[in-house]
Design a protein around this nucleic acid. Structure first.
Lengths: 360, 360
DNA sequence: AAACAGTTCTACAACGATGTAGAGTGGCTC
DNA sequence: GAGCCACTCTACATCGTTGTAGAACTGTTT
């Protein structure tokens, strides 16, 4: 056992003095250099244990020019999707010896830009960034000189690696799922008017495609705007749609939070789900398996997104010559059918343990 | 506008050369030292802008002995309570110029111990730690030589500042709420057998107190164990209780996830909530305002916990002489009554915007 | 005109680690 | 026994910044 835990830190000098070697030898031991006599190594290790020495990471970082930290910029952790994503990214990073520093942009444009150029950037070796407000017009700001991986296909051909799911296809599949159940008056919640390349636009596009392929017209009255993709805005939009008197037999929430907000309103108004209105969401956050009714949704392969992003970033960080062309990885998605579209006959996944369940 | 964004970083030397001053003067400008001629300052600032210079934080950290980063160790971000807590802590830290580095312990004892002594510690100036598995027997491990604030009252009289809510009182109030509604067969979900000082034990204690004050016996058959406080374990425990055949007219979930899991099972079994069984949770995560029915819960003052913890930690970090006795701050709680106990007459908070709502 | 306080700036040595270069060992080959 | 390779270790410079001490200038006071 170690004895020391003193106020000020022990340095390699002190360890070296105690072990009777040079500080470089201590450094070599710490870093697992191969040519060290076992006897020396033992002496150094004993000294390290005695003094409770630990490497000063700031000094190492300065010397090595690496910090071992990667940044993760997301809108807000209080949005379950991003909390779960952060969880996965942290796990993936940890498995590769990296630490994660989280920044919240609050979906505010200025703050998204700040993340790209801010001071904080220098604490990290690279950045995984999920921008919501930046668009193609910001391509310049996104042309940064450090490793970066973007999540989402918002910035087409942008100057960085991208990890994204196939938003159009996934939204089309979600809509198709509703069409297959015989629904014809499918409302959308979460559209962003005027946007052309964001997740909202792409998912709406997938929705349109599915309808058109089915030979249906897209009724603008069924497309509900919702700037922020929160439960509250989902609820408000659902109310607006219902109050408008338009006929609706299904709702496609562009994310789960919106769909859950909608579900809440439908329940409050005693509208049967899926009897009168079927509901599908997008993201497969854990909550969807426990809502009443449970929510059918699109699973975007969160783990896959996280590990791919970390791997791509790490590759960029360790890249010798930074010439490699930027890649775009498109991850798999799957429709997870639950009660909100299939009704009670759907298997109720009561005992579904979280993927990364931990011991008691 | 700045011109440069070169591969390797610009240093103070280059700025100094361009501005025709010493590097210390550049440092002085950067740090807002007062005795600098306006003309000099302008020249330096121009050079900084031209070269796109940014301080190398690793070097500054090394020199100053501070990193400006605080650690936050929580079980998992995929648990909404901790995601929301992390959100609040990040905001509070940011307002004070600090960055937050999150570690996930997964409620695994070894990992909780690792957090205390691990390498990563050196990246931070202090730690906000929410331990779940450590107990009084770990007081030694908790006696660290760096600033630390513990969340939760698990380690009584432990060698650190604590921020906690009054678990016993809050649980008593929650139970009282159910008693006031005429419930007499109140089940608990989430007890930890054998534990005496954790949140589980304290909340169960509050539950017992309320029952005893009401002149009721505590029926062991009503106390449901659940190691992990997840939705899945809540659902499992609820099923076990129902299957046991014991009479139940109310359920107290020791956190919201457990209560939501229970709600899910009750819904699946078509048991009316609150008609047949009333349900109350604990934590006031956002989801509780949108579940069906909405969930009555105990609001532990998350923002207050976060800001208090950050303030305490900062005080420790900036403390000149580290003699000050450890404090324990107990935050306020409030019962948030919703449909799961009050039924439909409860106001449905459809438009309840999140506290930190951001612009569209 | 000397002394002094108040400015403005600079040189140099840190902070604690690691990379480089090279000095010693010893053993082996020819 | 000279040369060479494989080990084992060390001295020193270096990463980019900031603290310390003090030099140089200005203006004011005596």
């Amino acid at each position: 056992m170690s004895t020391a835990k003193r106020g000020s830190a022990v340095t390699m000098h002190e360890v070296a003095a105690r072990a009777g070697v040079s500080i470089k030898t201590v450094s070599n031991v710490v870093n697992g250099y191969q040519y060290i006599r076992p006897a020396t190594k033992e002496r150094v290790e004993a000294a390290i244990a005695d003094l409770g020495y630990q490497v000063n990471i700031s000094a190492r970082n300065l010397r090595r020019g690496r910090t071992g930290i990667i940044g993760l910029a997301v809108p807000e952790l209080s949005l379950p999707y991003f909390a779960e994503l952060a969880d996965s990214v942290i796990r993936a990073a940890e498995a590769r010896g990296l630490t994660v520093l989280i920044e919240q942009t609050g979906s505010v444009r200025e703050r998204e830009l700040e993340v790209l150029s801010g001071q904080r950037r220098h604490l990290t070796d690279g950045l995984i960034f999920s921008p919501l407000e930046l668009g193609p017009q910001d391509a310049d700001a996104l042309r940064v000189d450090y490793p970066m991986v973007l999540l989402g296909e918002r910035i087409f051909g942008g100057p960085a690696d991208h990890v994204t799911m196939n938003n159009i296809e996934a939204a089309r599949a979600a809509t198709q799922h509703l069409l297959d159940l015989g629904r014809r008056r499918i409302a959308v919640i979460g559209a962003h008017e005027g946007e052309t390349v964001g997740s909202a636009a792409l998912r709406v596009q997938g929705y349109r495609q599915a309808l058109e392929e089915a030979g249906l017209d897209v009724d603008p009255a069924l497309v509900g705007e919702a700037g922020l993709w929160h439960r509250a805005t989902g609820a408000e939009t659902m109310e607006r749609l219902l109050d408008s008197g338009v006929e609706i037999d299904a709702v496609f929430g562009l994310n789960d939070a919106l769909a859950l907000g909608a579900l809440h309103v439908l329940h409050a108004r005693r509208i049967d789900v899926p009897g009168q209105i079927a509901v599908i969401g997008f993201d497969d956050i854990e909550e969807t398996a426990y809502s009443s009714p449970t929510l059918t949704t699109v699973a975007p392969g969160r783990e896959q997104i996280a590990t791919t992003a970390v791997d791509l970033l790490l590759a960029r960080i360790e890249e010798v010559e930074p010439g490699k062309p930027f890649v775009q990885v498109i991850t798999d998605f799957a429709i997870v059918g639950r009660e909100s579209t299939l009704g009670e006959q759907a298997p109720v996944p009561v005992s579904r343990a979280p993927e990364h369940a931990t011991a008691t």
